[in-house]
Write a protein that binds this DNA or RNA. Structure first.
Lengths: 347, 347
DNA sequence: TTGAAAGCGCTAACAT
DNA sequence: ATGTTAGCGCTTTCAA
């Protein structure tokens, strides 16, 4: 590979100095029209592209924002990045990301990578990076946490949705739709999972259903299925799942066990990811404004870079996207919807 | 934010020269044990982290590999990145990525970003970057294309699966399972889509079903549903979809129209993404070894950096992951599987 | 309007 | 075993 041309090459080719090339190429006003023309010409001919590394080194900033999603498996994360990037473009910042990982070692590697690149800001999406590490990082570069409740670190802004409220939306919706007993399925030891679980319990209690509170911590496969079967036998006719992925697992387990959704069992997920509308039955899901949260994260970063000192905690209010998976027993019977009549414990 | 400590700061704090700090921190053998100790100590106290920008500028390489997925919507891309990253770690290279985009303008911006960061190699995953642009890029940095058939650019390696063969696997499987007429659903104007379509047509012809070849170019929503209904009315009882996402759309449309899958209609997807096993019915899908292809892409990059001149075209052979969505009419009737009897045109 | 020179933080060849 | 020095490619005073 031929070495890429530098400012110096262009300068020589145009017969001017490096500085003038730099100015001309960046559109500085005080460069003679003819000279500028010659410079632009020469640059084009050589295929010159300025070296971002060198510029960043000189300027002490990269105009880069690093995104650290906890995983790319759940579309939630990429939706946030989407918003982040959109806002970044508007602000003249570029967003780079890493694949994301659940394993702490890999996560640390990713974090180090982003930091090593001298990103001007870091957006950590739902990742379980340890608070101490976050604090250490935040002393060198602005950090915004997205989607992580239960955390209050000085110097670190947080953008999240109200998980308790979201859980309550799900519970109320199910109850209002005529469901009697609601199970909560979660695999999470994570903060968001905890908050949703707490919201579920609170909402149940608020509706006088404290006695019905039941939580299944799902591992993959058979265990979940057995738990669902057992719950149904005990009269549970609805599930509020920690997120859409869990909800799909519930639907899958139910199908395995011959339990009809939403006939025998209503299911509500969380995040309203693209999956929700793609699978059958279409999934009712709590929707957080992910792209908007991403945009907000970038705005907070900019404010920090601009000198803001006090911490921001931005809480978005989720809404409920109602779909087929939680249709009340009475509403069923659309074409193509061949579900069983409600089980006997319904009456 | 306090400025981050530099080599110079550490050197002063440890009472030695910059170079010695650099050597000590990188574990050079010829540094006195005591001195090294002192240096490491000082670095730790100051929280020193070497500046990758400066190092890269000096060394003329970044040890960075850029991944440009065409979109994060389809898990296929992230699976490839996963393999890429795994191999990267083994080789001491880091993988950075951008969100990916379908719009040409955004795609170009992403490409420029990666290039501006001086990545040592670029992996373009399924993205429809124009050949001319690819060629231009490849003159400055090694480029590997993943998942893109129909392309033969000098200086650019390609890792892909045999789409024609994959399509044939799907067709044969459906025919062998007793299906009569197979529809192909694609939205793609892309190369992979074209190749799969060609494979479908060839396989149909090879089995004497040339007369049954029928292709639906799916736009969203109603149009697809109508096309499916029409096809079923014409005796089609199976669909081979361009990818898993399309397959899910087909299943969705079928459900809307009261067409049972796999009862009335068998469906086969492509890519065998995580989605396939998550939705009901579980999706039969052509599987390409995505992670392995990612690893291979990185290996090819390394070879290029090592001076290889001739082009490599690596074609992986896909396999078929058979699941519920293509179960033959006779096999149906598992618990929880309440599908209709075969429609009359079956007999 | 243009050029010269300093220096961002690092590495590596060359002293000592 | 340790220090000095010269850049990597760029931006940015400061002079001319």
């Amino acid at each position: 590979m031929p070495p890429r041309p530098t400012l110096h090459d262009v300068a020589r080719s145009a017969g001017v100095s490096k500085s003038l090339v730099s100015l001309a190429l960046r559109g500085d006003a005080g460069v003679g029209a003819a000279t500028r023309e010659r410079i632009v010409q020469a640059a084009a001919e050589l295929g010159y592209r300025s070296n971002a590394l060198a510029r960043s080194l000189k300027q002490g900033r990269t105009r880069l924002v690093g995104a650290l999603p906890s995983s790319l498996e759940n579309p939630y994360h990429t939706d946030v990045v989407e918003g982040l990037e959109g806002a970044g473009v508007d602000a003249g910042l570029s967003v780079i990301m890493v694949p994301g990982a659940r394993e702490p070692e890999r996560r640390h590697r990713h974090l180090d990578l982003l930091l090593g690149l001298n990103v001007d800001g870091l957006v950590v999406i739902g990742s379980r990076v340890e608070p101490e590490r976050l604090l250490a990082v935040a002393r060198r570069v602005p950090v915004v946490l997205v989607g992580r409740p239960e955390i209050d670190l000085p110097g670190i802004d947080v953008v999240r949705n109200d998980d308790e409220h979201g859980a309550a939306l799900a519970v109320e919706h199910l109850l209002d739709a005529g469901r009697r007993r609601i199970l909560h399925v979660t695999s999470g030891t994570g903060p968001a999972g905890r908050a949703r679980r707490a919201g579920y319990e609170a909402a149940m209690a608020a509706r006088g259903r404290a006695a019905d509170i039941r939580v299944v911590v799902s591992d993959a496969g058979r265990a979940l299925r057995d738990a669902i079967v057992a719950a149904c036998a005990d009269g549970y006719d609805a599930v509020f799942a920690r997120n859409d992925l869990e909800a799909l697992a519930v639907i899958d387990a139910a199908a395995d066990a011959g339990i009809a959704v939403p006939g025998d069992l209503a299911v509500v997920g969380y995040d309203d990811t693209a999956l929700a509308a793609r699978t059958r039955p279409h999934l009712t899901s709590v929707d957080q404004p992910r792209a908007q949260m991403g945009r907000r994260a970038l705005a907070l970063l900019l404010e920090r870079l601009d000198g803001r000192e006090d911490d921001v905690r931005d809480v978005f209010t989720p809404t409920l996207a109602v779909r087929e998976s939680s249709a009340p027993p009475a509403t069923r019977g659309r074409p193509g919807d061949r579900t069983r009549p409600p089980p006997s414990h319904m009456g």
